[in-house]
Design a protein around this nucleic acid. Structure first.
Length: 269
DNA sequence: ATGGTGGTCCTACCA
């Protein structure tokens, strides 16, 4: 079967439930991974999505900040929430997708810390937290061999690793999300192991590719000062099965938009 | 170099 997965930092799922419904109407993904739901589990509008066929749901919420969720039309098993850096932030949830009797696919949904403004862990604890999170992620991936078979990793990773993942490589080298130390740590976690970048699989490294445009730019489309903060990675075993990818840039212009847009990947599973 | 906007929840904090 051709399987379609979407990932989207929704920046409050209660405020933008209608935009998720619009995504569903337009794209009808089999699985939707959301980040920054910004609500507790009990406040998640699961009923509305259930009515649209997403009867399988896994939610890790908290009050006011962060929070991740997975909506699925495919049966989910083994819901797991990992706590990073020993603080209670809801920044990860994983499930196994059980599709048409084949071996399940492990799916990890992440919201990696943004890291604040100053790219120095001595001056900015939030940047230190981001680096520690990435180190812990790299260790976990290696130790538990997260991509050993059929696996997908998505989310707002808050890092734009390639030169053309940002509007100006030179201007952003000291801007959190594109600093060399963050890129190096992301590469250590994902770039050199059993993972495969499913977005750059379809778009060459020499081409600009963004998923986020700041709210602070009223002319976001004209200025087009974007960054690719949202990612889809698949295990190398799944890489030959990739069939398509798109970034729904239009969603940045929807009414009362998120500052991130959905990324959609299709593959045979 | 600076400030620009938007979310949560009600006072700043976070992005």
């Amino acid at each position: 079967m051709t399987f379609k997965i979407a990932t989207w930092n929704i920046n409050s799922v209660r405020l933008r439930r209608g935009l998720v419904e619009k995504l569903i109407a337009q794209e009808s993904p089999d699985v939707i991974c959301l980040q920054e739901i910004k609500c507790r589990d009990a406040e998640f509008p699961g009923g509305a999505f259930r009515m649209l066929g997403y009867e399988q749901q896994a939610v890790s919420g908290q009050k006011g900040y962060h929070g991740v969720a997975i909506l699925s039309r495919i049966p989910l098993e083994n819901v797991n929430k990992r706590e990073f850096c020993g603080i209670g932030d809801a920044r990860h949830i994983s499930v196994s997708l059980r599709a048409n009797g084949k071996m399940p696919i492990d799916l990890h949904n992440f919201y990696i810390p943004a890291g604040g403004d100053i790219p120095d862990r001595e001056q900015n604890q939030k940047f230190g937290h981001k680096l520690d999170f990435l180190d812990e992620l790299a260790l976990w991936i290696e130790k538990d061999r997260l991509a050993h078979e059929r696996a997908i990793l998505v989310g707002d990773l808050n890092i734009a690793p390639f030169e053309h993942d940002v509007w100006s490589h030179k201007a952003l080298l000291k801007i959190v999300s594109h600093t060399p130390i963050e890129v190096e740590k992301l590469n250590r976690a994902l770039g050199s192991g059993p993972w495969h970048d499913a977005m750059r699989h379809f778009v060459p490294e020499s081409e600009k590719l963004y998923t986020w445009w700041s709210y602070r730019s009223p002319d976001w489309a004209a200025a087009d000062k974007g960054r690719r903060l949202d990612h889809v990675w698949v295990s190398k075993k799944l890489a030959p099965q990739l069939r398509g990818m798109k970034v729904l840039r239009d969603a940045r212009g929807w009414e009362q938009p998120s500052d991130h847009v959905p990324v959609i990947v299709e593959m045979e599973i």
